[in-house]
Design a protein around this nucleic acid. Structure first.
Length: 306
DNA sequence: AAGGACAGCAACCGCCCTGAT
DNA sequence: TATCAGGGCGGTTGCTGTCCT
């Protein structure tokens, strides 16, 4: 028995989102909060699959998202977390504030894979805390990697055990940054509107209200028939959100959003629960001063906490 | 300047999990 | 207990921009 598609594919628009669609989606979510994605296309008039709406929100429009320019520290974290967790991008993303799993996945596939390949081929690099010039380091790193390889499997198993409800119930509350139940609420809608603001700024720069000339923007995905309407809508949105003073004006949860909605906008990611058991790992990962002195932490110490 | 190759990334696809009924 | 819908997730695709010849 085949699974039903998430939505009726007929008449569903695909491809890149237009600014108008983004505005509509953000406006809707601002009013109703994220969730109940199936209702979004029908209630907004967007000719998009519900999944597409959720993805667009989660990966692009959601509050607190930072895009591009991964820092070296973020790279290190991704590399080490990937070694420990595998391609569990959502779990990895939960440790990286402001990054989406999709972003991390793309970054891994396009940048870090190559970098690591290079590093493997060229052991002389010390960029990731592997000071090659030291022979003792070579031994140390080798030992560490061997141990890591052989024990990752066990660690994963233990981790999944630790994640089971009966065990996680007595864990200390210490969650990854992106766990949206404990996410340091940035500023209600501010970050999201920042995204939209940037989007619109660029859009307005490039589209002096001539979208109707563009086939892309006139495909009928948005119930706006005139440039004027688009402009008015954007202006209203801009006015409402206040491009230039987003952080201050929206430093609290948007009043127009219900409490449930306010809370639920942080819901989009799962989290790991075995945080106390990962505490040393986290300390290790987040302690910038250490510069990932891998050899200072034995694998036994690490795995002890799984 | 043209066009082919390549890289980066947004978005889609389909499987899986979970909660509701 | 079985079934279903909604949502999450990882893998993959394909579009677009940039670089190279």
């Amino acid at each position: 028995m085949g699974r039903q598609p998430c939505c009726d594919k007929v008449g569903v628009k695909k491809g890149p989102w237009t600014p108008e669609e983004d505005l509509i989606l953000v406006s809707y979510i601002q009013q109703h909060g994220p969730g109940n994605w199936r209702a979004v296309p029908t209630k907004t008039g967007l000719l998009r699959c519900s999944k597409s709406c959720r993805l667009r929100w989660a990966n692009y429009l959601r509050p607190g998202i930072r895009r591009g320019n991964f820092t070296e520290n973020e790279e290190k974290m991704i590399i080490h977390l990937q070694a420990l967790l595998g391609n569990r991008w959502a779990a990895i993303a939960s440790y990286l504030p402001e990054r989406t799993d999709n972003d991390i996945k793309n970054y891994w596939n396009t940048h870090l894979k190559k970098k690591l390949k290079k590093l493997q081929g060229n052991e002389s690099s010390s960029r990731y805390g592997f000071p090659s010039s030291s022979s003792s380091y070579q031994i140390c790193r080798g030992q560490w990697e061997r141990k890591l390889q052989t024990d990752i499997h066990m660690a994963k198993k233990d981790l999944s055990d630790a994640l089971s409800p009966e065990k996680s119930s007595d864990l200390v509350e210490m969650k990854p940054f992106n766990d949206h139940t404990s996410y340091p609420k940035p500023s209600g809608y501010a970050s999201s509107t920042e995204n939209i603001a940037k989007l619109l700024k660029g859009w307005m720069r490039n589209n002096p209200w001539k979208m109707a000339d563009s086939a892309d923007y006139s495909e009928g995905t948005v119930p706006m028939k005139e440039d004027k309407n688009s402009k008015e809508m954007a202006e209203a949105f801009q006015s409402h959100l206040g491009f230039e003073s987003l952080d201050s004006s929206l430093s609290d949860i948007s009043p127009s959003m219900s409490p449930e909605a306010s809370l639920s906008q942080y819901e989009s990611k799962p989290h790991l629960n075995a945080q106390s058991q990962l505490s040393l790992l986290e300390k290790w990962l987040f302690d910038e001063g250490k510069d990932y002195q891998l050899c200072d932490i034995t694998l036994d110490q690490n795995l002890h906490f799984f």
